[in-house]
Design a protein around this nucleic acid. Structure first.
Lengths: 196, 196
DNA sequence: CGATTATATGCACGCAGTGCAAATATGCAA
DNA sequence: TTGCATATTTGCACTGCGTGCATATAATCG
């Protein structure tokens, strides 16, 4: 019935990956808008109709690569000591995350997304899910309600800093994302302290 | 040639408004997805083709209502005393803004947007423009570069709080948006101070 | 009024996305 | 292996959004 470890599941995930990588290749070559689903289907060796068994929309072919991110962020938070102050928890969780392997194609992809309105809009929407997951993870650590104001604020700020660091990085910044992130948190604490 | 104060300009803006209000009415009645452009065109008494002379996309018919918001926010910041600390400047600018007249249809509209993925995505993307305008206005007040880290952070935080307040308000909260906003900034300062 | 320019409309087209039914491939058990 | 059940793939027809282009209508100005 299900729970496959067999051929079916393997072929499915191979096809999934093939569609995604061929699509991204074409998008980077020709731009998102001017690549049609027919092109992608042909490049991936499937019918146009089958694409929709793997991805809901054309945008999702690109954006689903980040689908696991909310869970990853939540896990990073869960791995922090529970007595850490909220903001430190967020700061350090992201720093831990930044130690993960760097995808070389990521820069080009980030540029593609931010320069394509349809993709940029969807990407922003995805960050909303990250923010919610982050807030929930923080609340769980502290035994608070997921809607707790402090948790939501800390999550929002964390996502802000992450966006900032990502953008700096994809613009070819010299500093590491961790450095940018820590600098941002430091500056934020200054701002909150008042005298600026 | 142009610079009309005449009939042409008046008819145009009337048609613009009629399309928008009829469309929103239909969206609220039937849901965004299930209303077609043909329906809107008929309700507004224009041809389907003409809709695209007023709005680029179906989503824009709803979202363009907020088109002027970045400028409004920037103006509110410009009206603050220049020696105010950055975060206070943001907090107070939004508070001044919250004193503006409250649109009664706004709640239903906000719900429509947040419950329609296509609209929610576009809405998030619009906040990006608000954030940029806000950062630029702050930088101008302080004589800093528009990309200054402090200005960008303050702008990001301001938008976060605004989103939070808006969401609370459109969920039928009892407190005023100003109160929610001030409470959020206060909590944020506590978080940054560390002991939470 | 006539000339110019903005705006409106109709028509044809391309492309994204969906529902449905038929075909094909896989898993499983006898 | 064979045969059945189930998952996947495909083709086809269709709706709806968005665009280019040519043509009509209406406002502005001399």
């Amino acid at each position: 019935m299900s729970g496959d470890g067999g051929l079916r599941e393997r072929k499915r995930s191979e096809t999934h990956a093939r569609i995604q990588s061929e699509a991204v290749r074409l998008f980077l070559e020709q731009g998102f808008e001017s690549v049609t689903l027919d092109q992608i289907a042909q490049a991936a060796g499937v019918s146009r109709r089958s694409l929709f068994h793997y991805f809901d929309t054309k945008e999702e072919i690109v954006l689903s690569a980040k689908a696991g991110f909310p869970a990853v962020v939540a896990a990073a938070v869960a791995a922090r000591p529970a007595d850490e102050p909220l903001l430190d928890m967020v700061e350090n969780a992201f720093a831990d995350l930044a130690a993960a392997p760097r995808d070389p194609r990521g820069v080009a992809l980030a540029r593609l997304i931010s320069s394509t309105p349809a993709l940029a809009a969807g990407d922003q929407a995805k960050y909303d899910a990250v923010e919610r997951a982050l807030a929930a993870a923080l609340a769980a650590q502290k035994g608070l309600d997921p809607d707790d104001l402090g948790c939501r604020l800390a999550a929002a700020v964390g996502v802000d800093v992450f966006k900032l660091a990502t953008q700096a990085w994809s613009s070819g910044a010299t500093e590491t994302p961790e450095a940018v992130g820590h600098a941002a948190f430091a500056r934020l604490r200054e701002l909150a302290a008042g005298r600026t």
